[in-house]
Write a protein that binds this DNA or RNA. Structure first.
Length: 594
RNA sequence: GGGGGUGUAGCUCAGUUGGUUAGAGCGAUCGCCUGUCACGCGAUAGGUCGAGGGUUCGAGUCCCUUCACUCCCGCCA
């Protein structure tokens, strides 16, 4: 028998009464009654209440021992009297009467309590992460993460995918995020980069004929953090398939995500078959390419209404003449909402930098009319047209914003969230997945006015290659897709462009000549020239999937050893200075900015 | 790079219009308590009020600068 434990701390039950056991674990909590002492002994599996009284010679020693000390106890399992059963813990019907104990790991005074549901400053949590991770909620989150990853591996294997590793030291990529660089000792003045994603490698795996690849892949991007974005590193379920069309990728990912979310969450899935929304529609109806479909509100463009003569809202008419559009959000049956509801939203919009939101409520006495500050500017006929166009009914209210397209998208998207929140329209107990499809291949850089790739430069443009009008690049769509869940972007993917000539053509539109492409993507271009299969894939973010399943808003709550916002590991003291010899060996000298 | 929030005991926080010796709960230490499960009761220790400067008879409180953490914008093909 193992010398540390005969059972773990979540194993003993009524049937074990009268047996002699030894348990090891942390002292989670002590309740000292002077002549009687309760100790909650905790390990990864659970808690067992242990008890000792004054008669035992160990009593006074145990009484003095610090919480979080690791001890081993030996004792007898006894059943608890009916009144003292604790239904909160699984071992609550029994307790262990301690005969003897031994300290296995002593504990200094704690910088932060482990036994507490209170929230603590990140700084101290991260510095003492090993203590923080003992706490129930985050401990369970990390275990959930492990289980989710195991499950995904098994599902992927079932679906016929094989897991392959790709290099961590690779070359810097010209596009995209900032790279983490690693100096090469053997190649003075040259640097490796940590992969932002195994993008090129997974395509090379397809060219190498492996057909179905996946990997729980670490990705490194040197960009600033957010609540849902770790600085430095994160994990993707990276996958790629040969001889597939978009639908084949969709089927794999939908199966996987539906199975995963069904298994690890009790929340309902609003759609088992994920709706597909084109990028263009999404930007119009939701103002964003990451719509939260739990939110039933829809945005409508009603610019045309304002060309009518019987609509006299001149401010809007004037703005429209100079290129603005009008979009609106309908709220159902809000006729009885107090004035403050409407004014709060108008004021909110002004705070958000818009010029406010005009609104009215549709009423019907003898005939249709609009009640509200701007209601008088709309004729009965124009209201009927609005109702026809937007599906609004008597009793509904309409909020309008008028602005440039880009600004409208921003404000209506925010307004959709804001109004839905105020009206409590979002079902927190649901997951709403969707696909966003038909992304444009290119977009115009607002600053430089140049054409650039809007997403992934390796994506395949849509349509018959001979018929693509390269003269109008902004109209070219790509086989490029995102998965969104509850307004969170979970992943993006694409059918790849496996035709070198087409690749050169597409890059030339974005301002790269053939030589530049050859130089920057030498491995890829070369590989595509030696018989590349049509292929495509996607890469769902593991951290964000676990966040959704664990119902956490912050990625650090599902990451074992995260860095803080300044990309520092407060526990390990990373990054840190290195000594001169190390720098010398790498041919590096330090020269600080200003 | 920019904007917001926070910073007071080991931890979580309170601290009024600027006014005597800066408080509470948890934790620590000591004492009492044989059925608790956030055990209870009593006592003690513990403070550069993030740091620096300024205003003032007097600053935790007002002003300026700065630092740290955090949230957001930029950024994240």
């Amino acid at each position: 028998m193992n010398k540390y434990r005969s059972h773990n701390c979540n194993e003993l039950r009524k049937k074990d009464v009268d047996s002699k056991v030894h348990l090891s674990g942390w002292i989670n909590k002590k309740r000292d009654h002077g002549n009687l002492l309760f100790i909650d002994l905790r390990d990864n599996y659970g808690i067992t209440q242990c008890i000792i009284d004054k008669e035992n010679s160990c009593f006074s020693l145990l009484e003095k021992i610090q919480l979080e000390t690791v001890i081993k106890i030996e004792g007898n399992v006894v059943s608890r009297s009916k009144e003292t059963i604790n239904e909160e813990i699984q071992t609550g019907e029994i307790e262990v009467v301690i005969n003897s104990f031994e300290v296995l790991g002593s504990c200094k005074e704690l910088p932060m309590p482990v036994f507490s549901d209170q929230e603590y400053a990140e700084e101290i949590r991260l510095k003492y992460r090993f203590l923080d991770l003992r706490r129930k909620k985050i401990h369970e989150n990390i275990i959930l993460r492990s289980k989710v990853i195991s499950f995904i591996r098994a599902e992927m294997t079932k679906l016929g995918f094989l897991e392959y590793q790709t290099p961590i030291l690779t070359s810097s990529s010209p596009e995209g995020a900032r790279d983490f660089l690693v100096p090469s000792r053997l190649n003075p003045g040259k640097f490796y980069a940590l992969p932002q994603a195994p993008q090129q490698f997974k395509q090379l795996i397809m060219v190498s004929g492996f057909d179905k690849y996946f990997q729980i892949a670490p990705c490194f991007r040197d960009e600033d953090a957010r609540a849902d974005r770790s600085p430095g590193e994160f994990y993707q379920l990276d996958l790629e398939m040969s001889f597939v069309e978009q639908e084949d990728v969709f089927n794999v990912v939908e199966t996987l995500l539906v199975n995963t979310f069904r298994k690890f969450s009790s929340k309902k899935l609003m759609f088992n078959k994920f709706p597909k929304i084109s990028y263009k529609d999404s930007m119009l109806k939701y103002g964003t390419d990451k719509p939260d479909l739990r939110n039933p509100l829809i945005i409508n463009d009603v610019t045309e209404i304002f060309s009518r003569e019987d609509v006299s809202l001149d401010i809007f008419k004037k703005l429209i003449k100079s290129g603005s559009k009008v979009r609106c959000i309908i709220t159902k049956n809000t006729k009885d909402k107090p004035r403050s509801f409407f004014d709060t939203i108008d004021k909110w919009a002004k705070d958000e930098g818009a010029s406010g939101m005009a609104y009215f409520t549709i009423e019907k006495n003898n005939e249709i009319s609009a009640k509200g500050p701007v209601g008088k500017f709309f004729s009965k006929e124009s209201l009927e047209e609005i109702m026809k166009k937007t599906g609004a009914e008597v009793g509904d209210s309409i909020f309008f914003a008028c602005n440039t397209k880009r600004e409208l998208e921003r404000i209506t998207s925010l307004a959709r969230d804001k109004i839905a929140k105020d009206l409590d329209l979002i079902d927190e107990n649901a997951f709403a997945f969707c696909w966003i499809v038909n992304y444009p291949m290119y977009e115009k850089d607002e600053e430089t006015k140049k054409i650039k790739f809007s997403h992934n430069p390796f994506s395949m443009p849509q349509g018959n290659i001979d018929e693509i009008n390269f003269e109008k690049p902004l109209e070219i769509l790509a086989y490029q897709y995102d998965i969104v869940c509850n307004g969170i972007e979970l992943s993006s993917g694409a059918i790849r462009n496996h035709i070198p000539e087409l690749m050169y053509k597409l890059f030339s539109i974005a301002g790269y000549n053939k030589e530049q492409v050859n130089k920057k993507f030498s491995g890829m271009i070369s590989a595509l020239s030696y018989g590349a299969p049509p292929h495509g894939g996607i890469a769902p973010g593991i951290d964000r999937i676990v966040m959704l399943l664990a119902n956490e808003k912050n990625i650090r709550e599902v990451t074992m050893f995260p860095m803080n916002q300044n990309a520092q590991d407060l526990m390990m003291n990373a990054p840190s200075e290195v000594n001169d010899d190390q720098l010398k060996e790498l041919n590096l000298t330090l020269k600080f900015k200003k």
